[in-house]
């Protein structure tokens, strides 16, 4: 279930697009020997580099990570750097972690953005800490991607930093908070109700109600606290929530709460 969200989640779309590209790679690329593909990647011809990356990406072998990382470090035009990073994302190899983390300091924001999406896909060690640092990035789109990626990889240690980010208008942090929060975090989340538009927080609530690892008791408690707000906006939200939830205690609580709110 995904209720209305205020951000565009680009990560999945990008990876899907690249996966489709890889699946449709030419037969010659699929059949190319590993060392031939590495040789292409190491060349100075853009088309050869693209073909080499496609080939290595399609094979998704751990040993393909090192030559791609080396090629990135040796310097490429921006477009090829981003392609190489996206290739690493498609390969979903955590061995790509070091180079991806390095790229969070790349001068080009689009490369940092691609690196964040790749970290979310590859879930390398130290990736969570690196993404937390990326919340400090001066480029809004990079911060937003980092927040979403933290939720995506389930890096619960980032919860405090995500709250700070939310307070500093990184609105995407709400969704990540919803993905990572424990019942003990609900008081802090509710501190923000009334301080920022309700729409900003609904991604957090959506994620919480969609999670199977978030206790029903906590969900019902959350519905009760929302109902206490008794605003038309909350009534609408709870009504839509009740429509989408499967039958059960939580759905009933949402239905009753929505009915209790006048208007």
């Amino acid at each position: 279930m995904r209720m209305k969200t205020i951000t565009h989640h680009a990560t999945g779309a990008t990876l899907l697009a690249l996966a489709a590209l890889t699946m449709s790679a030419p037969v010659s690329a699929q059949e190319m020997r590993f060392d031939e593909a590495v040789e292409l990647v190491q060349s100075s011809d853009p088309d050869s580099i693209r073909l080499g990356l496609e080939t290595l990406g399609a094979r998704a072998e751990a040993r393909a990570v090192a030559p791609i990382a080396a090629r990135i470090r040796s310097g490429l035009p921006a477009e090829l750097t981003e392609l190489a990073v996206t290739t690493l994302a498609v390969m979903e190899r955590p061995e790509a972690g070091p180079v991806l983390i390095e790229l969070l300091s790349h001068r080009r924001p689009s490369v940092r953005l691609a690196a964040i999406e790749a970290i979310a896909a590859t879930k390398p060690r130290q990736g969570g800490e690196a993404l937390m640092r990326a919340l400090d990035d001066m480029t809004p789109s990079v911060r937003a991607a980092a927040a979403l990626a933290l939720g995506q990889i389930g890096h619960r240690a980032a919860i405090d930093t995500l709250f700070t980010a939310l307070e500093r208008d990184v609105l995407e942090a709400a969704q990540a908070i919803g993905q990572l929060a424990l019942p003990t975090h609900m008081d802090r989340l509710f501190d923000h109700v009334g301080q920022m538009p309700f729409d900003v927080l609904t991604p957090a609530f959506n994620e919480l109600f969609a999670r199977s690892d978030f206790p029903d008791r906590a969900k019902i408690d959350l519905i009760g606290r929302l109902a206490e707000l008794a605003t038309p906006q909350v009534k609408t939200y709870l009504t839509e929530l009740a429509d989408q939830l499967p039958s059960g205690r939580v759905k009933s609580a949402a239905t009753e709460a929505a009915e209790r709110i006048p208007g």
Partner: peptide, 10 residues
């Protein structure tokens, strides 16, 4: 040297 390497092409 890393700086030179990483950015020389862009």
């Amino acid at each position: 040297r890393n700086f030179l390497r990483l950015y020389h092409a862009e």
